[in-house]
Amino acid sequence: MKYCFYYDMRRCSGCKVCHIACRDKNRMNAPNLSLRKVESIEGGRFPDVWSYNLSYSCNHCEKALCIDKCPTGAMYRETKFGSVQWNKNKCISCHNCIRVCPYNAVHADKDRIVQKCDLCIDLLEKGQSPACVSACSTRSLKFMEKNKLGSLNKDAVLEVKNYPGNKKYKPILYIKPIKEAKVKNGNKKIKNDKNFKKRSNNIEKNK
């Protein structure tokens, strides 16, 4: 995958415009279903408290478990941009892709139909950015070729607390973290985060 998302959490205000733009672009009506999520994570103890926002979607991993575990080839990688795509005509709704995704980024609607980020490939074909990137008011979310990261890559990481960006799968989300979000000495978890529990459990069972 030669493209990547670059996310500067220091600039992110948590406005969720990227989340809303994604829902609008994909015409998603279910209130709890979205292909891009924004989470607010808090920690510390008064008076030394802190918080940060985390925006994420499908990571279009170079080593994608959803592709490996799909029995029909419905999950596949297109060659022009290297993104992970889904063919509804081949899908049998077994939901293997949902169970194995380390990032909780593949979903199903009320009719059990699989839903995932397609990287707005129709916009990429026109030379435009994904809808979430274009909508970002603080420009904290960017989409670019990896070889153009340049100086941005200096302090970027694949993993922050509550988001285990396992290098084993080679995700495309590069994060510029605040210091409190950096993973130190294997301490990846913050208490009382239900989303982290599911993601970390998926990471462990797929090792």
Rank of each mutant, 00 (worst) to 15 (best):
Y103E: 00
M144K: 01
S134W: 11
A131N: 10
L119T: 12
I113R: 14
N104T: 13
T138E: 09
L124F: 11
Q115I: 06
P130K: 08
E125G: 11
Y103M: 03
L149F: 09
K126A: 13
I98G: 09
L119V: 01
E125S: 10
V133G: 07
E125Q: 07
K146T: 00
H107K: 06
E145V: 02
K142D: 04
N147V: 02
L119Q: 11
F143S: 09
D122S: 08
L124R: 02
V106S: 13
L152A: 00
E145A: 01
H107E: 14
E145K: 00
P130A: 04
D111W: 08
N147M: 10
L141Y: 04
C136W: 02
Y103W: 08
E145W: 00
C132F: 10
K148T: 00
S140N: 11
C97H: 15
L152Q: 07
C97A: 15
V114R: 01
C101H: 06
R99D: 06
L124C: 08
R99V: 15
L123M: 07
M144A: 01
L152K: 01
F143K: 07
K110S: 13
L123G: 04
A105G: 14
E125I: 12
S151N: 14
L141F: 07
R139G: 03
Q128P: 02
D118F: 08
K148S: 09
D118K: 03
T138M: 06
S134K: 10
D118C: 07
L123Q: 09
C136T: 04
H107W: 12
T138P: 05
F143Q: 05
P130L: 01
A108L: 09
G150C: 07
P102Q: 02
D109K: 10
L149A: 07
N153T: 06
L123R: 09
M144R: 10
V114N: 01
P130M: 02
C101Y: 03
N147G: 09
N153M: 08
D109T: 04
A105V: 02
C136Y: 08
N153I: 03
V100I: 03
S129W: 09
S140C: 08
L124G: 14
D109H: 10
I121Q: 01
I113A: 12
